[in-house]
Amino acid sequence: MSCTGKKAFQRGASGAVVGAILLLALAAWYLPARLDAQSPAATAEIPDLSEIWARLGPLPGRPNAPLVPTARAIGFGLAFDEVLSPRYDCSPVSAPLILLDPFNFQIEQQADRVILRYEKDDVVRTVWLEGHGHPEPGAYDYTIQGHSIGWYENNRLVVVTSKFVFEPTGLDEPRHIPSSTLKKVTERYWREGDRLQVEATTEDPLVLLKPFEFTWEWERTELPLERYDCDPEDARYPAKFHGSTYQDPNWVRLPATGGQEQ
């Protein structure tokens, strides 16, 4: 090896050593944070909810309070035409109604997130656990399932979801009570033996006079999750039998704007 080659080799070796040290330092900084949720102390407060759950109903002795909509929400429901419901086009249902649907769902707990998989509409919700550096939603990030963050507290999983899109039947399908972009759903899950229980609170000041609160319970099941595979053509067929809220659904005069057009 020439002198020049030896120096180049030494420089390369020095670079590799520095690189390795930097890598170790990075790992020393990063790994404890990643493993924090799995450390023995933290695990003691994390309930094991990772199962497939089958619907039971409200918690025994805890009858659910009724939904109390605002007048504008009731007015919207009265004006709404059933045939316009997005459910007839396989648009998936969101929280909180998806909790009440008679289908099984699965909870999968990971170090930095919790995945909620539902048979109904094949919905998958990702709950980003706080303290793991996931990006905050942007101003435009409204989606059907919203943006969920979560944390463990007193042996419970707390999930808070916001940034929902407007849904014309988002809080009551048969009566067409909508949910607005202000909807915020808080779910608190805990386990009692082979049962999963939840307390859910929905706030939506445009739609609800007071928060809508309910409890619900599921039991552990060995049955696998089934695919829903909603078929849009199939979904729309029954809509035609509902008729219309309007005598002539093809002709309603649009009110004058009074020169307020922009």
Binding site: P69, L100, D101, L171, E173, P174, P238
Partner: peptide, 23 residues
């Protein structure tokens, strides 16, 4: 009318998601 309906809905509203089958 809306107030009366609000009371009625508050008494009877039951959140559940499904296609209507009232026909």
């Amino acid at each position: 009318t809306v107030s009366i309906l609000a009371v009625v809905l508050a008494l009877t509203l039951n959140a559940s998601a499904h296609h209507g089958t009232t026909f």
